[in-house]
């Protein structure tokens, strides 16, 4: 089925040449336009035991994110803010190149990019996650699992994490004599913006959006940019070696902005439909 092969440390020459040849004509190896993302599918509330969850596919890349909410102590230097953490795992069944064991540098980079897109855009209203200042706050654990890897796990992970956040609910507590007790109701997780990332590859002098592995492995460089709902950047990651000319990067920022708003519309529609 797929024209992409597993990342193998060396590119398949005929595929590399074909990608170059097609790009010269403004075409891609899977027939997409240069700035076209693959099909996005989002299903939310897929894990009942999680407080929020979403299964997202971007083409054949598939990522499941689940969120668990607990009560814990705030960081001492931020007594009036709730806490959240992002973790990402590249499950070994997602690709022959992923190995079981503690997260490697790729998995850690992925979780930190997702974290930055959410944290720096101030998407989660952490001030509203405080129960008793300095003592008890909501702790939000966002865990992303890559189930199928067919390129660009960055954008798929951000999408699934944000979709899970959009459906996440928290148990409501009241404070009685300095202790918290559940009221038996739930409230929506307070979100201020919808962060979306767009990953672009530079191949020769062409910028393409949402690369598949065949493109990733021959790309001169890869750049992921996170944008909030206002179009403000909240994360940039140049995630592979190779030169990134300044002019190309400026183009990417603009292209990513347009694409991110397209993706955000799709995300809002999908989660809205999910209820």
């Amino acid at each position: 089925m797929s024209v992409g092969m597993e990342k193998r440390g060396y590119a398949i020459k005929i595929m590399k040449n074909k990608v170059y040849e097609l790009l010269k004509m403004g075409k891609r190896i899977d027939e997409r336009a240069l700035d076209q993302l693959r099909e996005i599918k989002i299903s939310t509330r897929v894990v009942d035991k999680a407080d929020g969850s979403a299964l997202v596919s971007l083409g054949k890349t598939k990522i499941l994110t689940g969120i668990k909410v607990e009560i814990g102590s705030p960081y001492s230097d931020r007594p009036s803010e709730g806490v959240f953490t992002v973790n990402a795992e590249l499950l070994p069944l997602a690709s022959k190149t992923f190995e079981a064991g503690p997260p490697d540098e790729r998995a850690i980079e992925l979780s930190r990019i997702v974290d930055r897109c959410i944290r720096e855009s101030r998407a989660i209203d952490v001030e509203k996650l405080v129960l008793i200042e300095g003592q008890k706050v909501y702790m939000v654990y966002i865990d992303c699992y890559v189930l199928d890897y067919d390129g660009n796990y960055f954008d798929a992970a951000v999408l699934s994490a944000v979709a899970a956040l959009m459906t996440c609910t928290l148990p409501v507590y009241r404070v009685v004599d300095g202790r918290v007790e559940p009221v038996g109701e739930r409230m929506k997780l307070p979100l201020r913006t919808i962060p979306v990332s767009i990953t672009m590859a530079l191949i020769k002098d062409k910028i393409i959006v949402d690369p598949i592995p065949t493109e990733e492995e021959i790309a001169d460089t890869l750049v992921t940019i996170g944008y909030d709902s206002e179009g403000v950047l909240s994360a940039i990651q140049k995630s592979s070696p190779g030169l990134l000319p300044v002019g190309i990067f400026k183009e990417m920022v603009k292209m990513g902005l347009v694409k991110s708003s397209e993706v955000r519309t799709k995300l809002e529609e999908a989660v809205g439909r999910g209820g």
Binding site: V47, K49, G66, K68, E70, N87, P102, Y141, D143, Y145
Partner: peptide, 12 residues
Amino acid sequence: ASFSVDERKPLG
């Protein structure tokens, strides 16, 4: 998965 159980399972 960490969220597969009632109490979040630690990673690893």
